[in-house]
Design a protein around this nucleic acid. Structure first.
Lengths: 103, 103
DNA sequence: ATTATTGTTCTAATATAATCGAACTATAGA
DNA sequence: TCTATAGTTCGATTATATTAGAACAATAAT
């Protein structure tokens, strides 16, 4: 079974997280995941862009530690690593989500 | 007397702020300003880089709305626009500063 | 006036990132 | 086994950022 590599909490870097959140497309993915509060496929998180473009953004979200992707069948289920990010950087993601929602 | 243009609160963009904070040099400038809690010259905030490079980073911090620069004589006095950023995006800068300090 | 100081702007080089079509991989289902 | 589905990876293109030297602008001091 395939697996996708994710950083652990010790490997999180604040600037990587800031960088990942600095792109509107990626920020929207994060907001959608937070709002849904459940795993979502890349397809559900699609922002009518080519798959390869979306895949690129997911890769950056994963490498920053913001998103966890587990493979279930042919689908990649994504979820926000909210608790872990909050544990390492309390309040950051929470405040950014609140800020992002009010557009 | 020369003047430097800064965005007003309505013009702040969350992604611009995230982007500005995604660079280690700029994040350090922001932390230094927050820690000092007073105006500082670009010289005092120097991170032994060429002046033109530092100037570039200040420009990005200013355009994001994070830093305000007022000219006093030959010096440019920089301060963190903490209250304004907090007003528009409550908790964001506060949490990021806390996160950045514990490196 | 001349010179020093502070920082910006200009310009060019290099590096990094975004975009997206096409080929590919892994699983599921017929 | 063949086909469909879901995403990734590859490769090339274009766009954006970083870096830094050199010239410049504004004030201050001699």
């Amino acid at each position: 079974m395939r697996q996708i590599k994710h950083p652990n909490i010790e490997q999180f870097e604040l600037t990587d997280i800031m960088y990942a959140l600095a792109d509107p497309t990626r920020l929207e993915i994060v907001v959608m995941l937070a709002t849904a509060g459940k795993k979502m496929t890349c397809g559900e998180l699609d922002l009518n862009r080519p798959k390869s473009s979306m895949s690129h953004h997911f890769k950056i979200l994963r490498s920053a530690g913001l998103v966890e992707t587990v493979i279930e069948g042919t689908e990649h289920m994504n979820s926000l690593r909210f608790e872990e990010i909050e544990q390492k950087y309390p309040g950051v993601l929470k405040a950014v989500l609140k800020a992002a929602e009010k557009v």
